[in-house]
Amino acid sequence: MGDAITEALHLIAFGDAALWEIVSLSLRVSLTAVALACMIGLPLGALLAIARFPGRGALVVGTNALMGLPPVLAGLLVYLLLSRAGPLGPLELLYTPTAMIIAQTVLVTPIVAALSRQVIEDLHQEYDEQLRSMGLRTGGAVMTLLYDARLSLLTVALAGFGRAAAEVGAVMMVGGNINHVTRVMTTTIALETSKGNLAMAVGLGLVLMLIALAVNGAVMALRPTKAVPRHV
């Protein structure tokens, strides 16, 4: 463990171009995937929270269950889609960062949808009669709910980011862990472990956790921190 911490400090202090390349690709892939997942998952979550339609219950159970989608399975599905033998083969996306973004989006969207559904549904219960009495239709109500739940939804997005940044199975499968092209933090950790460079692997793991900490910290800094919430 001492070795690992030394290694981590060394990595950060003398962070060479290679490390920076890997870190920035990780961030780029995971943050983009989370942004896309929010664009799909938030409206979907809001819809499931508010609308009543046949099959809604099944969809809710489905998204909840998909939160546990194994990354390798998500990777496999996206692989089958993007492979030259698959339907989207001609797009030549396999083994590119785009493929990794797609796989992580698949992985994170159910999390965003399921957690935001819960958040929005709770708030909806509370606001429903008030908003309807003001003559708001579903569309307007969704905007109000999304806005008022924004802090909780930010936490939802962070949970999604955590999942995306930490997973290795999906990006390994569809990215291929190609040096300088699709090598990210987690696949590097897996690679260094398989080379028996355990200190290096743990060191990289610590760097990854520091990054997660930094991202979370940056987001939390946006939130009001006083015990009594001050709204603007």
Binding site: Y127, E129, Q130, S133, D148, P229, H231, V232
Partner: peptide, 15 residues
């Protein structure tokens, strides 16, 4: 054209 003030006021999580 009708407005209600509910028995338990429902206020938004805003200022």
């Amino acid at each position: 054209r009708i407005a209600t003030v509910f028995q338990r006021p429902v206020l938004l999580r805003r200022s």
